[in-house]
Write a protein that binds this DNA or RNA. Sequence first.
DNA 1: CTACCTTTGTGAAGAATTTCACAAGCCCAA
DNA 2: TTGGGCTTGTGAAATTCTTCACAAAGGTAG
Lengths: 201, 201
Amino acid sequence: MYLRYLEDLDGRGQLTASSDELAQLCGTTPAQVRKDLSFFGSFGKRGLGYPVHELTAHLREILGLEHEWKVIIVGAGKIGAALANYRGFRQRGFTVVGVYDNDPRKVGTPWGESVVRSMDQLDHDVAHEEVRMAVLAIPSENAQQVVDLLVRAGIRAILNFAPAQIAVPPQVSLQSVNMAMELERLSFELTHGESIQAVAG
Amino acid sequence: MYLRYLEDLDGRGQLTASSDELAQLCGTTPAQVRKDLSFFGSFGKRGLGYPVHELTAHLREILGLEHEWKVIIVGAGKIGAALANYRGFRQRGFTVVGVYDNDPRKVGTPWGESVVRSMDQLDHDVAHEEVRMAVLAIPSENAQQVVDLLVRAGIRAILNFAPAQIAVPPQVSLQSVNMAMELERLSFELTHGESIQAVAG
DNA sequence: CTACCTTTGTGAAGAATTTCACAAGCCCAA
DNA sequence: TTGGGCTTGTGAAATTCTTCACAAAGGTAG
């Protein structure tokens, strides 16, 4: 989140930002900002604040964003389509190198500059293109099965949009986005009125 | 998350579940399960566990899911399309009652059994249909502007997919899903190898 | 009815996170 | 060069969250 705002400030030509300013932007406290950043190093200058451009670069490196990541999308349905064209991915250094589906009617249909590929190719492609990340946009039913296949193929990080609970071996990272659960969270907050304070997202 | 698993167990006809069993399913500890549930009441039976069906009903009520929620989708692009057809929403009691866009070329085009409506109608529709929730699937540029419009129209909860930071008045709930940020989290975990333990999602 | 096995609910202990508060350091102006 | 105004980095305090551990209670078999 800090990176997001710092890039913004950097784009506007702002040279430094104080913990106070970052805290206001991110909806947290100055002390929190300082503690968070100090975990990774001592980036600020006393009396002046943090050098925006430099800190941006540091955070990019910490997050492992100094190089492009190749990503495959598994599932050529509506959600897959939306994600494949999602500007935010490319903007932030994630390149979609392939879209896969196991429905023979979808395999071969055009997809941007490429075509939807068969799952059978996945193993080969991941090995040859050194892809490490996959976005999973398939129905829940066989999500675990497909994840196992991805892991065997060498995928090391999975962003899962299927509303299913998935197990992965410890060396594989998994992030699940469950859109229905997000709505349920809102339902809870609406139902319980002002007594619950929403967290900044 | 508990609700998700309990519904699953209920569907399979399981009558009771111990905190141990729920903990294993959710990737947490029995003590955590008991503390979490005890916050809302005393649902279990000693020596036996929690009554699955009954607890499911309790959690639904706690989350405010005992009635249907009407939801509008703002933005008739790829993401809007994916969300409007998302089975998970309807399955869990969220009914999409309208899709809106401010692009005159999109307004009026067919959308499922309805058509894409103009943003100008939104005010009127929200008031008459008593809609309280909106899903925001538009580009970041004018996200804040559209949110302000939604809030004025009476929307009280917003699920935001635009990769922008949005401000809302305190009585409005906001959840943001930032897909690029999720990938960045994975990038961080991959970059820092096994030293970081992924959280269950 | 009793003995025993099981599992909850919950204070207390322990761990982690956040906030406080201030010395140390940087910049600038005179 | 000195002094004053800011702001960081960080131990220590305060708070919050998680785990422990056990009394209380339901179930069952004999």
